[in-house]
Structure formats: C-alpha cells, structure tokens
Design a binder for these strands. Structure first.
Length: 293
DNA sequence: AACCCGGGGCT
DNA sequence: AGCCCAGGGTT
C-alpha cells in the first residue's frame, strides 16, 4: 500500500490531538444524525447548528419519525436557520428513505445523491463520516486549504466539482480510516486554523510545507468573486418575513396580514409567489396562505 | 457558469 | 458595510 503523504500524516496527527468535540463526532451518533447535521451545516455555521440539531433529533430520532410528520412541522422546527427549503428537502429525504430504503439511510454516493437536497458534498460527507467509505469530501474549507497548502494561492477561486474532487483525491490516504480522518481533518483545519480572513499559520501543522506560505502569502489574483447581494431590502428578506409569519400562525394567514409585512406590494407578491413555487407556502382559504401540510 | 436562496455574527 | 458560513437547485 502506498504510504500516506507527509501532508496526510501531519493533518491526521493534528486532528487527532485538536479536533473539536462536536455532536456528530460522538461515537454512535448514527447515519441519520449525520445526515441531518449535514443539511443544517449547508451554509450555516457550526455554532448556530448545534442547538437546533439536538432539538431536531430528540423529536425525530429516525427517518420514519420525520416522514410521519407534516412538512409544516419540519419548517417550524427549522426556525431561523436559513434556507428553509432545506427543511423541505430533509423531510423529503425522510420520506424517500422510509419508502425506498426500508427506513435505513443508504450508504452509497449514488443512492445518497438521488435524495432531495443532497449534492456532491453532502453525499460524500455521509458516505465517509457515517459509513467510513473512502471518498474525497470537498467543502469550502477543504477547497481553501488545498488552494493554499498545495496550490500556493490565497483563495481557490470559483468552485469546480471535478477539479476540486480530483485535488482532494490526490491527497487522500489509501487506508479507509486514515482517509476518513483526513477528510475531517482538512475540513477542521480550514474551519479553525486556515480560515478565510485571518489564518493562524503559527498553529498550522502544514506550516513547513505550505506553498502559499513558502511563496510569501501572495494575494489572490483570480477572477473576482461574486459579491452577494445586499440582504436588507432583498427578496430574500421579504420571503423570510412572510415565512416567519406563516411559522408563527397556526391558522391560515390572510392577504391583509401579509400585506402589512412589507411596503412594496409588487415585491411582496413576487416573494409570495416564489414561496408558493418552492412549496413553502400553499394557498388555503381564498386569499389566505399556510405552510404545507 | 451564473444566479438565486436566510440569517446572523464578525471585522 | 462587507464578508463569511461543513451547498444545492435551476436556468
């Protein structure tokens, strides 16, 4: 067997000594818990996820339990985690797992990819962390660490799934357990040491071999990264206001109540129509809306 | 490839 | 006032 690279040895030793004590790393946390955690962690920081995850798993400890619950309850329990479509997708996962997989979370990347809201990252994360399979797992942290330590640049630039997975695969140890630890370790390194803003290079296990450090920390020169639109005044804010009203009310919300949420009637209608199109709101009594059952 | 989708905390 | 966050779906 090919010996693990110096990079992998350094990362794995560092991770074994420095890993944060996170709920989904507890022994026996289980594939369902891992899957729920990965959904919540999509674009949402760890510290915001932990309390919501524990509530969620206490209430719905199995896919069958969630599948037996109306979508509306999943959306309410999602609260203000953001991107509420994830609550709908996760409910859809629970239904699919119950109907197609006998209530057991599937193990293979292709089966996981077939679930709603599961993409390249989440499928590999579940296969690797819940089942110990050897796959490259690439998230925003991994992309940044590889760009710096291996690529010698400050920032990975626009994501390319094929290229990013190949870059991680090239560093992945042959041994399954070492590969699993390496995947988690590189993510952790990006999350707590090789951060986007202020990397703590003095504490990095790769500081002696990092090509970005060796090159003198050149600034990013790639294509300009897309700037996220301002949230204040955006359709996203308006959707959030409407959905908060739907979550808070246990009877249909009237058009007049919705109209009071935002001054711009055109934008309000656009946001409401988008929520209906996404399945997050459904017409109830004439002129009223509710969460999906 | 570009765009849309929440919301909060940090710099 | 931006930037960033264990991404995914649609066009």
């Amino acid at each position: 067997m090919t010996p693990a690279s110096d990079t992998a040895l350094a990362v794995n030793a560092w991770f074994r000594a420095n890993a944060r004590d996170l709920p989904w790393r507890r022994p026996g946390f289980g594939p369902w818990g891992i899957l729920v955690s990965e959904f919540m962690l999509q674009q949402t920081p760890v510290v915001r996820v932990i309390p919501r995850l524990e509530e969620w798993l206490e209430r719905w400890p199995t896919p069958h339990a969630l599948a037996s619950t109306p979508q509306s309850e999943a959306v309410r329990a999602w609260g203000r985690l953001g991107y509420p479509r994830r609550a709908l997708y996760l409910h859809g996962c629970a239904v699919a797992i119950t109907e197609r997989h006998g209530g057991i979370v599937p193990e293979t990347v292709s089966e996981l990819l077939a679930l709603p809201g599961v993409g390249e990252y989440t499928a590999r994360a579940v296969a690797a962390f819940a089942f110990g399979h050897r796959h490259p797992v690439v998230d925003t942290n991994v992309r940044r660490v590889l760009a710096r330590a291996v690529g010698g640049v400050a920032d990975p630039g626009p994501p390319s799934t094929r290229r990013d997975l190949a870059a991680m695969a090239a560093e992945l140890p042959e041994d399954r357990d070492e590969a699993r630890v390496f995947n988690a370790g590189v993510m952790e390194l990006g999350a707590v040491v090789c951060t986007a803003r202020s990397p703590r290079c003095d504490a990095c296990p790769l500081r002696e071999t990092c090509r970005w450090r060796a090159a003198g920390y050149p600034e990013y020169t790639g294509p300009a990264r897309v700037v996220q639109k301002r949230f204040e005044g955006s359709d996203r804010q308006v959707r959030g206001l409407i959905l908060a009203e739907l979550r808070a009310s246990h009877r249909p919300v009237t058009a007049a109540e919705i109209a009071a949420l935002w001054p711009d009637a055109v934008q309000l209608e656009r946001a409401l129509a988008a929520l209906v199109a996404d399945g997050l709101a459904v017409p109830a009594e004439p002129g009223s809306y509710a969460l999906p059952e």
